[in-house]
Amino acid sequence: LVRYRTISKIPQITLNFVDLKGDPFLASPTSDREIIAPKIKERTHNVTEKVTQVLSLGADVLPEYKLQAPRIHRWTILHYSPFKAVWDWLILLLVIYTAVFTPYSAAFLLKETEEGPPATECGYACQPLAVVDLIVDIMFIVDILINFRTTYVNANEEVVSHPGRIAVHYFKGWFLIDMVAAIPFDLLIFGSGSEELIGLLKTARLLRLVRVARKLDRYSEYGAAVLFLLMCTFALIAHWLACIWYAIGNMEQPHMDSRIGWLHNLGDQIGKPYNSSGLGGPSIKDKYVTALYFTFSSLTSVGFGNVSPNTNSEKIFSICVMLIGSLMYASIFGNVSAIIQRLYSGTARYHTQMLRVREFIRFHQIPNPLRQRLEEYFQHAWSYTNGIDMNAVLKGFPECLQADICLHLNRSLLQHCKPFRGATKGCLRALAMKFKTTHAPPGDTLVHAGDLLTALYFISRGSIEILRGDVVVAILGKNDIFGEPLNLYARPGKSNGDVRALTYCDLHKIHR
């Protein structure tokens, strides 16, 4: 019993810090008490220290592992850092350059016999395009090294910054494609005289377009951006097909006994025919423009016929181009109408809503002055909100995010209106959640004399007048207030005048 009563005193000691020596009952000389009392004092002292730490809000209350900052290894790049964003855009520009100039170089340097010394005699450094290609190869190699040090988000939505895990993730992902696209074939085969082989191998750079397509997928929600990307894709495919079309004609031209190829026909049409040795002929500019003209006309199913396939190889390629053109029509131009419709969806919704308003007016036989006010209010409210119901949009977000959005939407009023000066951010967040926005066209009466005042109004834009009878008592403008002081009276009061809008007004109100 003594032991039980001794232990039962522990909660009292913990909360009230009572010393055991003052209790005459606990001072009985028993061996059990002498053993338990020192333990009680020690526990009391420890609990006292913990309570003191909690009340003082000291940093040592938290466990040590929670006080440590997340460790980022040296030379690790955050995937959302500004440097990584700028670097990704730079790589994107280099990939676009590669997609345009690599097929052009591979096709127009394929057994090209233009006048001038061969590239091997001039030297590697004197070729501007080769120098640019070398810079692109170096940048792609540097990009691989950067990807080995860039964080990523795993399946659990955690940012991984450990170098080993980053390397394994990159090896399992895009490393092989990036490595093949970054191989400097110019340096590996330079001086061997195989410019045709170098041009063909350099087309491996186009593998990076797969990554670019995935990154550009984030802009699919913007109709104008999608339309622009589709047109660029169409032009890029036409450019690639033009390079292939020229390569076919250029390879067949020296081996044909009869002059029936499209390059021969082009030379005869523009007065620059090929001679018996295969030299001469149109310039590279004429060849490229004509090839691009043929691919565009074939892809769009126009086909004027002034550039036509004559050999079997050219006919087979033309059939493939027609098939590609039909697929592009289905996948690209078939979506253009939907994209344009999405661009004008706001206008369509406006006309639909206006039609419903006019049908309501016609069905209920609203008189002319009231009908005009109804239409003007709808037009003004639509121009202010673009038909978007803010309350319906915010309803799907958590309250903390709703408060931040409301604070942002009402920031101008909260910053410049005098009653809100000096208020804490928590108070402003709470008030912003209570605001209701209303609009009024010129001549609209917001409050009639004798109406119950259940709200306090803040003028965000425009001006109003307060009338008693036919006498203008006051004219209020931006950041002015009218209405009933909230919670100042037990019952809502009545208006002693009319409140009429002089201009288009936007008002925020808080109800009782």
Rank of each mutant, 00 (worst) to 15 (best):
R429A: 05
K215L: 03
T113V: 10
V393R: 02
A155I: 14
F234M: 13
P442M: 04
P309T: 01
V289Y: 01
K287W: 01
S308T: 09
V180D: 01
V302R: 03
I366D: 01
Q372C: 06
F185M: 10
I146H: 01
K287A: 13
F378L: 07
L431D: 01
F294E: 01
V168H: 11
A69P: 05
V302C: 14
D88I: 01
R214A: 11
G422P: 04
L327F: 01
P367H: 08
E112N: 04
L370Q: 01
F140R: 01
S283E: 01
Y344P: 03
T445P: 05
A381V: 10
G261R: 01
Q269L: 01
E64A: 07
D217N: 09
G325E: 01
V180T: 13
A430L: 12
T203D: 01
N275W: 01
D186F: 12
G199S: 13
E64V: 05
G123C: 01
L200V: 04
L374W: 03
T120Y: 06
I248G: 01
E221M: 04
F304R: 01
L201C: 04
N275T: 09
L229I: 11
M231V: 05
R373Q: 12
L241S: 01
E314T: 01
S81I: 01
L230D: 04
P367L: 01
E195Q: 15
P442H: 01
V100Q: 01
R259N: 14
L343S: 12
Q269K: 01
D217K: 10
L446P: 02
V289K: 01
A235V: 13
I177K: 01
M139K: 01
L370T: 01
I138M: 03
Y274M: 01
E221Y: 05
T76F: 04
F294M: 03
S194E: 14
D178T: 01
S276W: 01
R349K: 09
R71L: 15
C243A: 01
Y80H: 09
S383A: 11
S326C: 05
L446D: 01
V210G: 11
W75R: 04
F360A: 03
N386A: 07
K425M: 10
N250S: 09
R218K: 11
A440N: 09
P369D: 10
W240G: 01
W382S: 04
E221I: 03
F363M: 15
L129A: 09
K287V: 04
L236R: 01
G346R: 07
T352Q: 11
E196T: 13
L241E: 01
V302P: 01
G223Q: 06
F171S: 04
L394K: 02
I366P: 01
D88K: 01
G280V: 01
S105G: 01
T290I: 01
V321W: 01
D268R: 12
Q415D: 10
I189C: 11
K84S: 02
T424E: 07
